Simulated scan of single mutants.
Amino acid sequence: MTASEPSSLYLPPLRIPVRTIGARTFDFSRRVAVMAVVNRTPDSFYDRGRTFALDRAVAASFAAVEAGADWVDIGGAPFAPGAPIPIEEEADRVVPVIAELRAGSDAVISVDTFHSAVARSAIEAGATVVNDTTGLSDPGLLEVVADSEATLVITHSLAAPRTPYPRPQYGDIAVEVAAFLAERVDRAIAAGIPEERIIVDPGHDLNKNTLHSLELTRRLSVIADLGYPTLAAVSNKDFIGETLDAERADRLEGSIAAAVISIVNGARIIRMHDVAASVAATRMTEAVLGLREPAYLRHNMGDVND
């Protein structure tokens, strides 16, 4: 097999592999996109407010693009249970960051929100993806996305936003998550969002325990078999920390391993905090799968062995 020949390993049966998202086009049959994470919250899951200040959020966004991120996911409200963030406050957090990044970059920008009003303002500011981690909890979100050119990420999540979901139970988690996502995809299409603007996310750790998230990772192909680009948001999640007995600052290696396994099992977008390491791991995985050529060939290619 040459580097250009397809791998005999699993490749997702993408219904529409070539996607144009904003100014960028991705052939997800041969490319995995790396999504960086920037949170403008004082209590974010990973950075604990490091990028809450506007200037730091903007700087982190541009730094992610410089490090090789294909797109940047900007959020203004945490997923974890807690008091709701007022819609106006959430918009005030994310819109200025989106506007500044859009003015200086053609990268894909997603807004991490479930509120239709925040999504509308974010799209007007330059966001080209709405990343809803609540399974379409706001009925108005579909209309907002349908009336735009934005792509929608549909995520598996069972609880109402920012509420606890104790002791989640599943019979066959991969099958149940796939069925949930298929139903939500049908709902989005019925609302006027075309297939080529839909991405699915099984929602690692969202209303799931560590054993659930581990199983979803190794059986991600069940989700990818739906035919839509699958996003794996595995970076620094609790399932990695509990598996390795690692605090949030010590989960890079586990995050990279989970991302690579997700790609091998069909993920075509990975949402990661450490951009440079994630981009290198992703490009190496693409090459092993036969999806990309090496940057150059020199080792043992000439008359003298290197």
Rank of each mutant, 00 (worst) to 15 (best):
P6N: 04
S8L: 15
Y10V: 15
P12I: 15
P12N: 09
L14F: 08
I16M: 11
G22N: 13
A23W: 13
D27V: 09
V32L: 14
M35F: 13
A36C: 06
V37L: 13
P42R: 01
S44Y: 10
Y46W: 01
T51W: 11
F52Q: 00
A57P: 00
A59N: 11
A60S: 12
S61R: 04
D70T: 07
D73Q: 13
P78F: 01
G82Q: 03
A83G: 05
P84T: 07
I85R: 02
P86S: 03
P86K: 07
E89S: 00
R93I: 01
V94M: 04
A99N: 04
V108A: 14
S110F: 01
V111Y: 06
D112C: 12
A117Q: 06
L136A: 02
P139W: 00
L142D: 03
E143Y: 02
A146F: 10
E149T: 11
A150Q: 13
I154H: 08
T155M: 15
H156M: 03
P164Q: 04
P166K: 02
P168D: 04
G171Y: 06
E176I: 06
L181G: 04
R187T: 15
G192S: 06
I193W: 14
E196V: 13
K208N: 09
T210W: 00
H212E: 06
S213E: 14
L216I: 13
T217S: 07
R219H: 14
A224H: 07
P229N: 11
P229L: 05
L231G: 05
A232I: 04
A233L: 09
D238P: 06
F239H: 01
G241R: 01
T243E: 05
E253N: 15
V260E: 14
I263E: 04
V264E: 15
A267P: 02
I269G: 00
A280S: 12
A281R: 08
R283P: 08
R283D: 02
A287D: 13
L291W: 14
Y296A: 15
D303M: 14
N305S: 13
D306E: 10
D306P: 03
